[in-house]
């Protein structure tokens, strides 16, 4: 099993005709993802390497039965693109685009919650989601992930996620689903959303969590793990030695007013029984231990 997406997920790409959208849309299709279309109002009726282009998400959904969308639209158009996807009828939206203004994110997060409570938004500024062997939506390199299980991964960072997938693959350990929730201040999908889904997924037996400085999402996740999770969790938090007040690459990775430190996050997670690695390799080794003793 997997969470959020599987081999039946039919995906369209908003921005398939752009260079990034084309590259990753075709990569995802080559991986085996059920890519059914793209959108571009000016190029409706054409195709990208055989993938039909529609004028709108609504048209694409009507013609193809698509139930997911992946957004590669440049940041100024993301607010409209997210709403077009929800209004067009998809249930799952992965927004890869980075550089989206925080006010746009706060607005469409609350708008979706109110008017489209059954639509799941992942991102913005995220690598996407992969259920190895079934479906890969976004920019993750599919070949570094071993299909199957028993590990579920949820992460705020792209490269550190790839490293986690790769290290588990090297140890012959499979992954049910790997979700990149992204590094922005208002992520559409939270750690808790993913932990909850992994807890409910019978094939996921353990969860690896990769967090970073800024905000309090890791502390909230720790509270959830303490009260609601039976499955073992290992975690790594990046940015333990980052200076206060500086954005470390990601818009959301900032320690401000003494809040959002890696130390506080690690403490909260440790208190919830999570095994903490002090670097990505150590966190990976913890997960290998956990899996071997399942």
């Amino acid at each position: 099993m997997s969470i959020f997406v599987d081999e039946n997920t039919k995906v369209i790409y908003q921005g398939l005709t752009g260079s990034q959208g084309r590259y990753y849309g075709l990569s995802n299709r080559a991986y085996g993802t059920n890519v059914v279309g793209g959108t571009n109002p000016k190029k409706a009726g054409t195709d990208v390497d055989g993938i039909p282009i529609f004028a709108s998400v609504a048209d694409a959904v009507r013609e193809t039965g698509a139930n997911a969308s992946c957004i590669f639209i440049p940041a100024p158009g993301v607010r409209d693109a997210v709403m077009e996807a929800a209004e067009g009828g998809v249930e799952f939206i992965a927004c890869i685009t980075e550089g989206v203004p925080a006010h746009d994110e706060a607005w469409f997060f609350n708008k979706l919650k109110r008017d489209f409570p059954n639509v799941r938004l992942l991102g913005p500024n995220c690598p996407g989601i992969i259920s190895p062997g079934r479906c890969n939506i976004g920019i993750t390199a599919g070949h570094i992930a071993k299909p199957g299980g028993p590990v579920g991964i949820v992460s705020r960072s792209g490269t550190l996620t790839y490293q986690a997938l790769y290290e588990l693959q090297q140890q012959d350990i499979g992954v049910t689903t790997c979700v990149g929730i992204g590094g922005d201040p208002v992520p559409g999908t939270s750690f808790i959303d993913c932990l909850q889904a992994f807890e409910a997924d019978p094939d996921t037996k353990a969860v690896m969590m990769i967090g970073e400085i800024g905000g309090s999402a890791e502390e909230e996740a720790a509270e959830f793990i303490k009260n609601h999770m039976t499955k073992p969790v290992s975690a790594y938090i990046a940015g333990g030695t980052a200076p206060a007040g500086k954005k470390m690459g990601h818009a959301g990775a900032i320690v401000s007013g003494g809040k959002g430190t890696a130390q506080a996050k690690m403490e909260a997670l440790r208190d919830a029984g999570v095994r903490i690695g002090l670097n990505p390799t150590e966190a990976g080794a913890h997960m290998v231990d956990i899996v071997r003793s399942l």
Partner: peptide, 22 residues
């Protein structure tokens, strides 16, 4: 990658060094 860069700064500190930058 921002996560890996943060992680690299962390690990230099962990082994007793001082990073010059992120």
């Amino acid at each position: 990658g921002a996560g890996l860069a943060m992680s690299t700064v962390d690990i230099v500190n962990q082994v007793g060094g001082k990073p010059a930058n992120f």
